[in-house]
Write a protein that binds this DNA or RNA. Structure first.
Lengths: 158, 158
DNA sequence: TTATTAGTTCTGTTAATAACGAACTAATCG
DNA sequence: CGATTAGTTCGTTATTAACAGAACTAATAA
């Protein structure tokens, strides 16, 4: 059913917006996830999403280069259209980078903590920050191993 | 050094904005993380951040209730000021809810996958989606245990 | 070599968010 | 009871982000 599909596209859009993307970027992801065959041309995206060429262009650029690389395209010989599709590989790569976010929070908290320790009387609050820090550290220690573990499983099952 | 502190406040602000908060909300977190003693009154926040009462009020409400609960306040007998401070406990609680985000992505992908399977010819792309899904599933299986493991360590070290 | 296609880039408009200020409320103090 | 304090709410303004439209570019095709 065609309307069911559009509902999915919007749902995916809303989810994707929570990753910090624009509404249209979200809908592009949605459209590509639900496309049959699983790719779309520039024009079909414009038409299907009722969006201007400029917006589609900008957002595709973002999704391919600046953002996560979740979208990529392939070409066919003797055809200058680009066929845009989801790159599941890059999607996975992107999720796997969550620890980097943790790392940045951790680094900043560490800086703050050392500032507090050398400039302030208070001790109890610093202890609390240390606890939070220990959580980040723990996660940063464990997550990479966990991800590797999944990679192993993945290889086996192929 | 007082200027060093303000730089930290802004840095924290930028980081916090990436969690989807407003710039001012970010700066409030920053100010409270660097405050000595580690709490501030409503007025001192206004003054220190050069922000209006209304903005401080709105953002404190958000940080206390709608958002993560990363800020809370305490009172003192015979003093009607509120003393706002970071709640490290709620901060940790908030981070621990990352799996919920994973869950929602996973659920949506599952819906899409079952839609694709029953309505579309294509098979290869669905297989790719399944791989992505398996990553979410794996993480959702492992993360809670990991978090528990940290809780155990935490109790021991106290 | 001109016309068409496929997309990009630039500029303007609209819509959404963030922040402000002034008026308000509820509590306390003199 | 005013007067003051501590914060909230509401209507407005300013900033930012999203999108559109038209002009542009690079490549192919006739």
């Amino acid at each position: 059913m065609e309307s069911q599909r559009k509902i999915f596209v919007e749902k995916v859009g809303v989810r994707t917006e929570k990753m910090g993307y624009s509404p249209l970027a979200g809908r592009i992801i949605g459209a590509l996830l639900l496309a049959e065959p699983p790719y779309m041309t520039f024009d079909s995206l414009c038409e299907y999403l009722n969006a201007s060429k400029s917006s589609i262009s900008t957002n595709l650029q973002f999704l391919m280069h600046d953002g996560s690389g979740m979208v990529e395209y392939f070409t066919l010989p003797g055809d200058r259209k680009r066929y845009f599709k989801i790159s599941i590989d890059n999607w996975v790569k992107h999720i796997k980078e969550i620890p980097k976010e943790f790392q940045q929070s951790k680094d900043l908290l560490e800086e703050i903590l050392s500032y507090r320790k050398s400039n302030m009387l208070d001790n109890e609050f610093s202890t609390n920050i240390e606890e939070l820090l220990s959580f980040y550290e723990f996660m940063l220690e464990k997550l990479p191993t966990l991800i590797e573990e999944w990679e192993e499983r993945r290889k086996k099952n192929n």
